[in-house]
C-alpha cells in the first residue's frame, strides 16, 4: 500500500494523514486548515459543539464529502477525484452512522454480507460464516434472519458495527454512534466499541460520551468553528483544558 514513498513501512506509517485541509459548503467555510495524523491502532475521540464540523471532518476521510484544499492520505492512497481510489479507500475505511442506516429491505445477515459479496467478491458461504462470527462478537447472532425494523435501536447499531467489521476495515469512523439511542441502550453499544478497542482496531469516534473517551481514547480532539482548537491525551484534556471554549464546552456537557 506504500505507493507514496517506497521505503515507508506499512506497519509504522500513519493510517490517515490530513494536511492543511479546507472545506467550504458554498460560501460557508466549514473546515479551516485541518492537520491531523492518525497512527495505526490509535483511537481518537472528537468532541465539540453542534455545527463545529465534526461530522464533516470524518466524512471527508471516506469522501462522503469532498474537500477543496489540502491533502488527505488514507493508507498510502491520496483522496482525489479518481473513483477507483475512492472506492478502494471506502472498502478500507468502515463507517458507523448516528442513525445506523441499515438496509431495511435486507435481513441482518444480508446487510452484513452485501459488501463482502459484491465489493470484496467473497464467496457467499464464506461471507455468511464471517458475518455470523461478527454477529457473535456484537452478541446478536440469534437475530440474523430478522429485518432491521424488528430490532431495537441498540441492536441495530451493533449490527451496523458488525456490518462495517465484515469488510475487514483498517480504520472505523463513528459519527455519534450513541446519540440517537435511548439511555439504557447506550451501554450495550459502548461495550461493543470498547471490546473493539481492546482488539486493537483503529477508531475515530465523534462522541460526547466522556466516560468512553477517558477509558478508551489515546487522544481527544476539541473542535469549534471548523478548527481543531485543542488536542490532548484524555487525562490532561479533561482535567486541564487549556482553551476557554474547551472549558465552557466541558462544563456544559459534564453537568
Amino acid at each position: 500500500m506504500n505507493s507514496s514513498t517506497a521505503n515507508d513501512n506499512p506497519d509504522t506509517s500513519p493510517i490517515i494523514t490530513i494536511e492543511g485541509m479546507h472545506k467550504w459548503f458554498g460560501e460557508f467555510h466549514v473546515l479551516k486548515d485541518i492537520n491531523l495524523t492518525v497512527q495505526r491502532r490509535e483511537r481518537i475521540v472528537i468532541c465539540g459543539p453542534s455545527g463545529s464540523g465534526k461530522s464533516t471532518l470524518i466524512r471527508c476521510i471516506n469522501r462522503l464529502e469532498e474537500h477543496q484544499r489540502g491533502r488527505i492520505v488514507v493508507d498510502g492512497i491520496e483522496l482525489t477525484n479518481d473513483l477507483k481510489n475512492i472506492e478502494k479507500i471506502r472498502t478500507e475505511v468502515g463507517m458507523v452512522f448516528q442513525h445506523f442506516n441499515l438496509f431495511p429491505h435486507l435481513t441482518i445477515l444480508e446487510n452484513l454480507t452485501l459488501g463482502p459479496i459484491w465489493v470484496r467478491k467473497t464467496p457467499r458461504r464464506e461471507a455468511e460464516e464471517s458475518a455470523m462470527y461478527f454477529l457473535e462478537k456484537v452478541r446478536i447472532a440469534e437475530q440474523a434472519q430478522k429485518y432491521p425494523g424488528q430490532l431495537s435501536g441498540g441492536q441495530q447499531q451493533r449490527v451496523a458495527i458488525a456490518r462495517s467489521l465484515c469488510m475487514r476495515p483498517n480504520v472505523i469512523l463513528f459519527d455519534e454512534p450513541t446519540s440517537a439511542l435511548d439511555p439504557e441502550m447506550v451501554k450495550e453499544v459502548l461495550d461493543v466499541m470498547i471490546s473493539l478497542a481492546q482488539d486493537g482496531m483503529t477508531m475515530i469516534v465523534v462522541s460526547h460520551e466522556m466516560g468512553f473517551a477517558k477509558s478508551v481514547a489515546h487522544r481527544v480532539l476539541f473542535m469549534d468553528g471548523g478548527e481543531i482548537l485543542e488536542e490532548n491525551e484524555p487525562q490532561e484534556f479533561f482535567n486541564n483544558p487549556r482553551h476557554e471554549r474547551t472549558k465552557l464546552f466541558l462544563s456544559q456537557i459534564l453537568d
Binding site: N62, L83, F97, R163, M167
Partner: peptide
C-alpha cells in the same frame, strides 16, 4: 433517505451496485 446512499457508498459499492442492491 440520504443515509441509505451513504451507507452503501461507505461499504465501497459503486453506483450501479448501490442502485441495484440498495
Amino acid at each position: 433517505d440520504r443515509g441509505q446512499y451513504e451507507a452503501a457508498k461507505s461499504l465501497g459499492l459503486n453506483y450501479l451496485q448501490t442502485m441495484r442492491l440498495v
